[in-house]
Design a protein around this nucleic acid. Sequence first.
DNA 1: TGTACATCAGTGAACGCGCGTTCACTGATGTAC
DNA 2: TGTACATCAGTGAACGCGCGTTCACTGATGTAC
Lengths: 193, 193
Amino acid sequence: MHPRSTRHETTHERIVEVAARTLRRNGYDGVGVADVMKQAGLTHGGFYAHFESRDALLAEAVERAGRDSATVMRQRIDTSRARGESALRALVEGYLSETHLRGVEGGCVVAALSSEMPRQSPALLATSADRVRGLIDLVQRALPQGGTREQAMVIAGTMVGTLQLARALGPNQQGKAVLAAARTELLSRYDPA
Amino acid sequence: MHPRSTRHETTHERIVEVAARTLRRNGYDGVGVADVMKQAGLTHGGFYAHFESRDALLAEAVERAGRDSATVMRQRIDTSRARGESALRALVEGYLSETHLRGVEGGCVVAALSSEMPRQSPALLATSADRVRGLIDLVQRALPQGGTREQAMVIAGTMVGTLQLARALGPNQQGKAVLAAARTELLSRYDPA
DNA sequence: TGTACATCAGTGAACGCGCGTTCACTGATGTAC
DNA sequence: TGTACATCAGTGAACGCGCGTTCACTGATGTAC
C-alpha cells in the first residue's frame, strides 16, 4: 500500500477507537461493521478502504484497547513507585475498583473478553493472547523486587476472574463484595505494609 | 401447558444436552437453533414445540451445564472428605487440571462464559449469575471449617480467571504454567498440609 | 495567482447468506369400542 | 383381538431481517502549469 493521506489516517484511527470501545462493551461478535462506521460518523461502504476484513478491524481494536488500558495502569504504577508508595496497591485498587466494575468499555480488554478468546480466528487469538501476556507483564512490573512470573500470573488471573464474577453478579452489593474481598486478600498477601 | 409424552420429554432433554455442550464450546452467540436441532438428530422446524424462544433454550442450557459440572465437582469434594483427605485439594486439582484446560465443552460453565454474562438478556443473566453463586457455594463447601464466603469468592475468582488465561494462552507450555502456578499458590495458602 | 485536471476518501445501492421464527402438513402412536 | 379415529411429535418450505462484502459513483482536495 502506498502512503495515505493524513485525513485517511485520522479516520482510520477514529474507527479503531470506536471499535475498541464497542468490542469491550459487546464482545467480539458484538462488533458490527455498519454499526461501528455509523458511530464513527461514516457510511459502511467505505469500510474496506481501511481494513481488509472485519477480523482485521477486530485485531486492531484489541491492540488499541489493550494499549490504552495498559497505559493507564502503567502510569498508576510508575507514579506510585515514584512517590515511594506501593505500586501493587495502586494497581490492585485501580483494577478492582467500582469504576472498573461499571466501566467495561474503557477498561481492561482481557477482563472484557477472556472467555471468548479461545474461540477466535488464529490471528485474532494471537493478538488477544499478546494482551494476556501484556497484563501479566504489567502485574510483574508492579510486584516488589523478587516478584516472580508465577506470582504475576496468579495475581493477574485473580484480578481478571474476580472482576468478571463481580460484573456477572452486578454492580450491587454482591458484586462489590467480591471486589472488596479480592482487594483485601491480594493486598494482605502481597503488600502487607 | 398440558402434560406431554415421555417421547417429547426425552427429545427435549436431548436438545438441552446438545445445547449445553455447544454453549460452552461456542459461547452464547454460538448456539444456533438449526445447528443444535441437527446435532440432536432433528429438523429445526420442531424447535418451538419445545422452547418459547432461542433465549429460553439458552437458559435451560446454562442450568443444565451448571448442574452437570457442579455434580462432578461435588462428588469429588465429598469423596475426598469421606476418605479424610483435603476436599479443597481435590477441587483445585480437578478444576485446574489439563483435562479441564482442554475440555471447555464438558467443563465449568462459569469459566466458559463469564466475560459474556453481563451482556445477556435479564432472564439469561439471572440464570447465569445463579451459576456464579453456585460455584462460590461449592468452593465454600470445599473449604476447611471456618472458611469464609469472602475466601470462597476470591478462590472461585482465581480458579476461573487463571483457567481462562491458560485457555487463551493455549494448551501448551504457557497455558500449563499458569495452571501449575495457580494450583501451587492456592494449595500452599489454603491447604498447607 | 488562477485555472484544469488527477487523485482519492467517502457514499449509497446492491449482493448472497445464514439467522430466528412461523406454519401447514405428515405419519406414527395410542386410545375407544 | 381388531379396526377407526384422534392426538401430537416432528418435517420442510417459507418469511423477514441484518450481516459482511462489493462496486460504480461523487465531490472535495490538492497538484501542475
